[in-house]
């Protein structure tokens, strides 16, 4: 396993101009490294469906790289999306999975079959153009440059150190973050998108 913060630091070096959508507890670290906030998006809103929204974004903006940092608990809620993504074959879609083997936001309970499940294998067999798996930072750091040059849909599963939150929701420290609407407005403004 490796730390999400370390992973994001290495990813930032290869981000280029990609649109980035971080999710989950591990995803909060992205803001410590991002250098292009107008292309960072918050697209959450329904259980297990951020992956689907990112597919729609990739289909809607085929000339932009769309990079999702998903979490395994969310993906398990809607595993069929792997087939949906593979079926549409978005060349610009990079699907990273931060697998900490647990529901970190609810106290660290394990997800089903957490230690044995092979998400990269599932993505590859579903029909992604390529799939990778990393359980240490060094291998990830050595591969991320070439991965970001691949043709999508690309799947990258990563074993992440869990950052478990166990305090009652009301007692947790609030980290300011932009709302979904704010990030959508910023991106549409940058790309000059006007809805018909």
């Amino acid at each position: 396993m490796f730390n999400a913060a370390d992973m994001f630091q290495k990813f930032q070096e290869q981000r280029g101009n990609a649109i980035v959508i971080p999710t989950g507890t591990s995803g909060r670290h992205w803001r410590e490294f991002s250098k292009n906030e107008s292309r960072d998006m918050n697209l959450g809103g329904a259980m297990g469906q951020t992956t689907s929204t990112c597919l729609g974004l990739a289909l809607g903006l085929p000339d932009e790289k769309v990079v999702l940092f998903d979490s395994e608990g969310a993906l398990l809620m809607n595993l069929g999306i792997l087939a949906t993504i593979a079926g549409k074959k978005p060349k610009n879609f990079f699907h990273f999975l931060m697998d900490n083997e647990c529901y970190a936001t609810t106290g660290g309970q394990p997800v089903p079959n957490s230690a044995e499940i092979n998400y990269a294998g599932m993505a590859k067999e579903a029909g992604y153009a390529s799939a990778h798996h990393f359980d240490n930072l060094e291998d990830f750091a050595n591969s991320i440059e070439s991965i970001m040059k691949e043709t999508g849909p690309v799947f990258v599963s990563m074993k992440m150190v869990p950052e478990v939150e166990n305090a009652p929701i009301g007692m947790r420290q609030r980290v300011p973050q932009r709302s979904r609407g704010e990030t959508i407005t910023a991106l549409q403004k940058e790309l000059n998108i006007k809805n018909a």
Binding site: A46, T50, G56, L59, G60, L61, N78, T84, L187
Partner: peptide, 26 residues
């Protein structure tokens, strides 16, 4: 017209939101 086949109906609303953000009309 582009068809986007989904695996479960809940996906259709989320995929549509992404398309709307990208300026499309699903």
């Amino acid at each position: 017209l582009e068809i986007v086949p989904a695996s479960r109906e809940g996906e259709t609303f989320a995929i549509s939101l992404g398309l709307l953000v990208g300026g499309k009309k699903p």
